[in-house]
Design a protein around this nucleic acid. Structure first.
Length: 570
RNA sequence: GGCCUCGUAGCUCAGUAGGAUAGAGCAGUGGUUUCCUAAACCAAAGAUCGCGCGUUCGAAUCGCGCCGGGGCCA
């Protein structure tokens, strides 16, 4: 990366200056203490480093330090300048040419960092109850989770995506009871869900069980003796609906892990026993308590109730221990912010059982507000519930994925349905996809014959297909040189993709990819407006076409991570 | 009551370990098309960084207190 190149130069020169005694009383410097930033004012340069912090140990003024360092730098064709305590850096042509060459060399791999420490990561997200359709909030976790998975894979990690099915609680019983009512309705009985608010909470009164009831009656004559049969039937149907929707949303899980199976396999019981063996369990009021407060939780938690049943937490603990036993180096969970209380408990249990709690990273996500015609519709409990499926039908997979990923996970997301549907620059999804389509369009035009409307003659294509092919496959340094001066900003933006990938993957923040893609699209649109690509000057044309190819590649790489399609035309 | 999180331009958000004149996008204003997609571009304008105190050469950023939105727990 160019910024690494720069900081290396600075740090080496700094050590050299220390050795020569040019930095006052400074006798040593630890690499990595200085950080590269982008100058606020782009006229200063492409990157900058502030050496003021060294003034304390050197006991000389920052500008003198900066000058002493710059003196010791081998500059090649790059520019270094000193303003106050800043050393500013402007990349020369050689570095820029290298960027484009790297894109042509690496293609789909461009942006992947080198020499990373590869980890085996299990990423758990969505993890909904199999009791109904997904709502919009699930859509955010689905989109962000799959983008994060794509990102971490691209970065170089092994990523295993898992969906934890919450199928062990009383909600499954409720589901069966609700289906029973729907079936009786289908059979012509005059029954309905209770109107009493408290009673009603024992049912799922949504319409979505009606088709399930119909389906049940295709193979069954009437109600079964045991409602459990209905519970299982409905659960199976709901799971399938959820799975189909996820696939349609380009979200792929490697595994669906059933909570029930965890209980049945005895792993929950085993986990309770292990906790008991660790001596961190005590009895109070007839229940078993886990001393989680020993590990930073603000209070102890019940692990086994007085009636002998386990709590949600118990299953959660067993599940996470199971993940660790499956050999993952790292567990990343995306949870709704309403589950934040669970983080400390689960971590406490991991530590109590002898594992490193830092292996668990929980990304807590804020909710989604739906904005319809400028009005916020709060996605509260059950009321006004718009399903994820409705949303995707309305605005499409691309727009939904992009909008769900484009904000920092810890801010509430406003999803403006009308805006997400528009085909204009108000809608960031269209804006970025249009940049890709535009690049494709230019490439098409470059090799297309045209009818001259005035003379009726067929005009030869500006470039033959073979020539274009040769350009993309046998890329040569010289190709890009004629346009290097006009494309500085664009090339630097292309190069930034590498930093963005590294930063996003390491901080798990996927929205930065969305931002980046918008910035790159913007630079490309600017370039397009300022420079005519297809022209009579063939060398210049080839040079600009090379750049268009590079932009198209980087956009495509970013889109692949976002799971957004890269349209050839719009 | 305790904990978490957010508060930056009319709106939606960035701001990377405290550093240069606080940045984008949208909306609003003014401009750009005989030519590769104007679904675009360019320009100017727009901010008491919720409020106060503190830490220091320097605070949107760190600390404390308060106010407000959201969430969880009791």
């Amino acid at each position: 990366m160019i910024k690494d190149y720069f900081i290396n130069k600075v740090e080496n020169a700094l050590l050299e200056a220390v050795k020569k005694g040019q930095l006052g009383q400074m006798s040593e410097y630890v690499k990595g203490s200085l950080i590269v930033e982008k100058p606020k004012n782009p006229d200063f340069g492409d990157f900058a480093v502030n050496v003021s912090s060294l003034a304390r140990s050197a006991k000389i003024a920052p500008p003198m330090i900066a000058n002493a360092i710059v003196e010791n730098i081998e500059k090649d064709d790059n520019e270094y300048s000193v303003i106050g305590g800043f050393i500013n850096f402007k990349a020369g042509k050689n570095l820029l040419i290298d960027v484009v060459e790297e894109i042509f060399k690496k293609h789909k791999e461009f942006g992947r960092p080198e020499n990373i420490e590869k980890e085996k990561i299990i990423l758990e997200y969505v993890s909904a109850n199999p009791t109904g359709p997904f709502h919009i909030g699930h859509g955010r976790w689905a989109a962000m989770g799959s983008v994060l998975a794509n990102l971490l894979k691209f970065y170089g990690h092994d990523v295993y995506q898992e969906f934890y099915i919450n199928d062990a609680g009383s909600q499954i019983q409720k589901l069966g009871n609700s289906l029973a009512i729907r079936i009786r309705q289908e059979l012509g009985e005059d029954v309905d869900f209770p109107t009493d608010e408290i009673e009603r909470k024992n049912y799922y009164p949504g319409d979505y069980l009606i088709p399930v009831a119909k389906k049940y009656l295709e193979t069954h004559k009437g109600l079964p003796d045991d409602v459990k049969e209905l519970s299982d039937f409905a659960k199976f149907e709901m799971e399938n609906l959820q799975k189909a929707l996820l696939e349609n949303f380009r979200v792929h899980f490697d595994n669906f892990y059933s909570e029930l199976s965890l209980h049945k396999s005895g792993k929950v019981e085993e986990c309770v026993n292990k906790l008991k063996a660790s001596g961190k369990i005590y009895q109070k009021d007839g229940a078993d308590w886990f001393k989680s407060s020993d590990y930073g939780d603000d209070q102890d938690r019940v692990i086994k109730k007085a009636d002998g049943s386990n709590t949600y937490l118990t299953a959660d603990i067993a599940y996470h221990i199971d993940k660790l036993e499956r050999g993952f180096d790292r567990m990343i969970n995306i949870w709704g912010a309403d589950h934040h209380g669970y983080v400390a408990r689960v971590k406490a249990s991991i530590e109590a059982l002898g594992y490193n709690p830092d292996k668990l990273e929980v990304l807590l996500g804020q909710l989604v507000n739906l904005v319809i015609n400028g009005n916020e519709v709060r996605m509260g409990k059950r009321k006004n519930m718009v399903t994820l499926e409705d949303l995707i039908d309305e605005v499409g997979v691309d727009a939904t994925r992009f909008w769900m990923s484009m904000r920092n996970i810890d801010t509430t997301l406003d999803f403006d349905i009308e805006l997400a549907k528009t085909n204009s620059d108000e809608n960031p999804v269209f804006y970025v996809q249009y940049a890709h389509a535009r690049a494709c369009s230019i490439l098409r035009n470059a090799v297309e014959e045209k009818n001259d409307t005035e003379s009726g003659n067929i005009l030869q294509a500006p470039l033959s297909k073979a020539e274009l092919n040769d350009l993309s496959e046998n890329y040569k340094k010289e190709n890009i040189i004629p346009t290097i001066d006009t494309a500085r900003k664009l090339i630097l933006k292309l190069e930034e993709f590498k930093s963005i990938i590294k930063m996003s993957a390491e901080t798990r923040q996927v929205y930065t990819i969305c931002r980046y893609v918008q910035e790159l699209a913007s630079e490309f649109h600017s370039f397009y407006n300022a420079n005519r690509v297809i022209s009579d000057d063939k060398t210049l044309m080839i040079s600009r076409l090379a750049l268009v190819l590079a932009v198209k590649q980087v956009l495509a790489n970013a889109f692949a991570i976002l799971g957004v399609s890269a349209p050839e035309r719009m």
